[in-house]
């Protein structure tokens, strides 16, 4: 399959029953396009972490994806508390997750670093009290990595 495709998944905060399904669906779409497994692996990790951040921290949000022959771009926009210090949030191990989230094995402060490690480009914009937009791009061209 060639050409561009795009779509959106809606995410509801604290909806742990469906958490991960947007990332699973995106993975399925990438597989149908015949994208190499290693790239799907990286995209799935980044998408899952970003999706979980919305579920854990925000009231609601959406995951919008655009796939072209050159790139996979995923944008997560949420209505959440915002991130006061993005530099701090990017530090491995730093987390503001409450105890019950940590007990579930989330909130270990590895989410944003995991996204950064697996994406070719990561952009975070956040306004405290309004929400956060996380955008990551993964290159499909060989020169991408």
């Amino acid at each position: 399959m060639t050409g561009n495709s795009d779509g959106v998944f809606f995410l509801t905060g604290k909806d742990f029953a469906n958490a991960g399904s947007a990332s699973s669906n995106l993975k399925g779409i990438l597989e149908k396009r015949g994208i190499p497994a290693e790239i799907i692996r990286r995209a799935s990790i980044a998408a899952f972490e970003a999706e979980m951040n919305v579920i854990i921290y925000a009231v609601a949000g959406m995951m919008h994806y655009t796939i072209t022959p050159e790139t996979i771009k995923v944008v997560l926009q949420d209505m959440g508390p915002g991130i006061p210090d993005i530099g701090l949030a990017m530090q491995e191990g730093y987390s503001t997750a409450p105890d019950y989230i940590r007990e579930m094995g989330f909130g270990s402060g590895m989410g944003l670093p995991n996204i950064k490690r697996n994406a070719d480009k990561l952009t975070i914009n956040s306004v405290v009290g309004e929400g956060t937009t996380v955008e990551f791009v993964i290159s499909l061209e060989r020169s991408g990595r």
Partner: peptide, 20 residues
């Protein structure tokens, strides 16, 4: 990929992780 995962977490999000 293809690993068997040993954990104490018993809630349903482990399924999404394993599937992904």
């Amino acid at each position: 990929e293809g690993a068997v995962w040993v954990t104490l977490q018993a809630h349903l999000n482990i399924v999404a992780v394993a599937s992904l």
